Amino acid sequence: MVATTTTQTVEQTVDVPEVAEPSKVAPKDARELSKLFFGQLTVLEEGTPEYSYARDTLIEMNMSLVRYAAGRFRSRGPEEMEDIVQVGMIGLIKAIDRFELSREVEFTSFAVPYIVGEIKRFFRDTSWAVHVPRRLQEARTQLARAHEELRTRLGRTPTTKELSELMSLAEDEVVEAQLAANGYKSASLDAAINSSEDGEAVLANFIGDEDKALERVEDFHALAPMIAELDERDRKIIHWRFVEELTQAQIGQRLGVSQMHVSRLITRLLARLREGMLSTE
């Protein structure tokens, strides 16, 4: 049921229709009512309660456009469909805020590209956890539809051969699409998982970390024989400085030489070892 209220403004009188349940208005009726509400938006002052009511009613009346556009992506799971509808609503709101009656075009024709564009942008920005070629992204969607169709028809999980026949693709291409689908979503490292030994744990506990010290193993193996070739005094200097971490002054006291002399000895030793390391690469 649609009623009409009259709002008095300083300059003019505006008739604002009242719709009891905007979200339940039939699409055909919504098209006609939308024209009336868009007309009101052109004369109402933005920020007033009347303007907000007209805008909100337009949004609710045209939610069917979002459901229609989201239906193109019905192969997605039910949880993801909720996100698709929410993103589509953003597109609808943008269309309402940018539509002008003077364009002389149906609002539905104007709004659907905005809604679909917002949904596609959502997929582009968030869907794939890793980069895969576009042909495999498209194959994944085709694979999901074929899998659901065959599962419903056969009452079981379809084989790769059955999928390839329905999709008109070679079996190896179907396998490639199945592997690429693994990159569609990623799991949080903080995701809780069940462990028989530790009870509930997080995924990060079961993923190895890179050990920076391993990078030095080869260097140590290459350096060891070169240090062995040094005379006893030079080996002691290397040991005191880099194992016991003595200062140059402390090493000088043990050798009975000045700190400056120790500095020159260490510089010479390091240059010799560095040259030997570079020659082994």
Rank of each mutant, 00 (worst) to 15 (best):
M1S: 09
M1T: 13
V2S: 00
T6C: 08
Q8Y: 08
T9I: 08
Q12Y: 06
D15E: 15
P17A: 02
E18I: 14
E18H: 12
E18T: 14
P27C: 00
E32Y: 09
L36H: 12
Q40Y: 05
V43G: 02
E45Q: 15
A54P: 03
A54E: 04
A54N: 04
T57C: 03
M63D: 00
V66P: 00
R74F: 04
S75R: 14
E79F: 14
Q86I: 05
V87Y: 10
G88K: 01
G88C: 02
M89E: 12
I93Y: 00
F99K: 00
F99A: 00
L101D: 05
R103Q: 08
R103H: 07
E104M: 06
V105T: 15
V105K: 14
E106K: 04
F110H: 10
F110G: 04
A111G: 06
I115W: 02
E118R: 13
R124I: 04
S127D: 15
S127F: 13
V132E: 02
A139G: 07
A139M: 09
A144M: 11
A144V: 13
E148A: 15
E148C: 10
L150W: 06
R151M: 11
R151D: 04
L154I: 03
G155Y: 06
T157A: 08
L163E: 06
L163H: 05
S164G: 08
E165T: 11
L166E: 02
A170T: 12
V174I: 04
V174E: 07
V174N: 03
G183T: 06
Y184F: 07
S188R: 08
N194T: 15
S196Y: 06
S196W: 09
D198K: 15
A201P: 01
V202Q: 08
I207E: 01
D209C: 07
D211I: 00
K212R: 14
A213H: 09
E215Y: 08
V217Q: 13
V217A: 14
E218D: 12
M226T: 02
I227E: 05
A228R: 15
L230K: 05
D231I: 04
D234W: 02
I237Y: 03
I238H: 08
H239M: 09
A249V: 11
Q250P: 06
V257G: 06
R264D: 13
L265E: 13
R268T: 14
L270D: 10
A271Q: 10
R274M: 07
G276L: 02
M277V: 11
E281C: 06
